[in-house]
Design a protein around this nucleic acid. Structure first.
Length: 410
RNA sequence: GGACGGGUGGGUGAGUGGCUAAAACCAGCAGACUGUAAAUCUGCCGCUCCUUGCGGGCUACGGAGGUUCGAAUCCUCCCCCGUCCA
């Protein structure tokens, strides 16, 4: 990623538009870039995030990477933590009212959040703000005044609300306040551009309108596509369990990326790597013409996605390990080591649960009966099997397709 | 405040006294095949105990009580959601 400040408007625009779902409005953004170029004053670009889940996954990084792009070309990245708004709960994409978070949860989440965010953003050059800074100071009069700037009908145009209304699902009144209160963020930050995922479009547009109501120019809005999760159809999200966490070990991330449907590769290339659109089109052509094996293209993708989080070396190792285990069907070079005390014998089912490879003994028994458990490469299909733990030893335990553990007794 | 409808396993959704750990579908998991992709086929899919058996125990149909030999199913009260009226 080139770190060149203030290229021409066209160059900047092309760079920023890459991967974007929509820019509202393109001509306004160009104008803002031109003014900034002229005055030498960087644009204020912000991304607001509610610290609801403390663990970031690749889905979150799509929009963070875009913020980084702005940062790369010299604009000011503002990372806004919605510590106040998280306590309301964003109704976006939710089919039911979300339980509000407590102050303690929000604080704890915000902390771990930032650590992860700076794996992508440049820490030194990022302005971090919390929206409780101004929202906590608002009184009832301010809130009433704010509400008077927006109409109920407009609010109900929003997809989430409309469908919940149609399907007789509850909508709490405080949820209507979410886009309005977060608009105050945009007002206070005096943002020139706000970023978000496409599902945030409604909120971002409300922010823009409210800014104007409060006498500001009105920010441009840039939305990024939603990253599809491992299942190949639904949005990547923690609650759906189809996500790849950015703090997961490289091997884990690698395996997960390899398990995505082939067609999804191209969108991952576009949203998670620095490949240019031309580059990606070329890869795609090579894969479909048979010049390159799709699996190799996907392995390359996995390496490129992992590298920023774990480094080139770790990414390379993960690739080798993958090759070894799944292509050559050998045992992994390295597996997480779990120690266990010398202690007579133990039922295999109990051991699997104890090592947290399986959630319950019933499930472990099923897995064993189905042939999903191996010790040192030998399938064990007797759920009553005792594992000898009477003397120091070590063995490789496999549970299911992906889970390997090196058990060290002693 | 009133009238009416509704709350079932991760999701959708059957089931109106025993044959129901609860149909069916989706999701998920495992095996086969393969490129740990997709597709397909097969099996599994609450917890637990053991003598692993079409085995035993426990928990489960919004909550609490009750009727009954027996309740997701009947009764009472409560909570929650929606629709219409005010």
């Amino acid at each position: 990623m080139a770190n060149v400040k203030f290229k021409s408007v066209d160059e900047q625009f092309a760079y920023l538009k890459r991967g974007a779902a929509e820019i509202i409005r393109e001509d306004e953004l160009r104008l803002k870039l031109a003014e900034s170029l002229k005055s030498g004053k960087p644009l204020r670009v912000y991304l607001g995030v509610d610290p609801t889940a403390p663990d970031l996954h690749l889905g979150h990084t799509v929009v963070l990477r875009k913020l980084k792009h702005f940062q790369d070309i010299g604009h000011t990245a503002v990372f806004l933590i919605g510590d106040f708004s998280a306590m309301i709960g964003d109704p976006t994409g939710v089919s039911e009212t979300r339980p509000p978070l407590t102050r303690e949860q929000v604080d704890a989440n915000a902390k771990t959040y930032l650590d992860q965010v700076f794996k992508i953003l440049d820490r030194e050059r990022t302005e971090v703000r919390y929206n409780s800074e101004w929202l906590n100071k608002m009184n009832a009069v301010d809130v009433v005044r704010l509400c008077s700037h927006y109409r109920l009908a407009r609010m109900l145009e929003r997809e989430d609300f409309r469908s919940r209304l149609n399907e007789n699902q509850p909508i709490s009144v405080h949820e209507l306040l979410y886009p309005l209160l977060t608009a105050i963020d945009a007002v206070n930050l005096k943002s020139d551009v706000e970023l978000g995922a496409t599902e945030q479009k409604f909120n971002l547009l409300v922010h823009r309108e409210i800014q104007r109501e409060y006498g500001l120019p009105g920010q441009a809005v840039l939305t990024m596509p939603i990253l599809v999760g491992l299942d190949g159809s639904r949005k990547m999200s923690k609650s759906l369990g189809n996500y790849i966490g950015i703090t997961e070990p490289p091997g884990e991330m690698f395996g997960k990326i390899m398990s995505i449907p082939d067609e999804l590769m191209w969108s991952y290339y576009e949203l998670l790597t620095d490949r240019t659109p031309g580059d990606i089109a070329a890869l795609k052509a090579e894969a479909s013409s048979g010049k390159k094996h799709p699996m190799d293209v996907k392995m390359q993708l996995a390496r490129e996605v992992i590298a920023p989080f774990h480094g080139q070396d770790a990414a390379g190792k993960a690739a080798e390990n993958f090759q070894r285990v799944f292509r050559d069907r050998q045992s992994p070079e390295e597996a997480p080591v779990k120690k266990i005390a010398v202690n007579g014998a133990k039922k295999l089912t109990a051991l699997l649960v104890e090592l947290q490879l399986i959630a319950s003994k019933s499930e472990a028994e099923r897995l064993i009966k189905q042939g999903g458990v191996e010790i040192d490469g030998t399938r064990i299909d007797d759920p009553r099997k005792d594992v000898d733990l009477s003397k120091p030893a070590e063995f490789l335990l496999r549970a299911g397709k992906k889970k390997f553990v090196k058990v060290v007794v002693g």
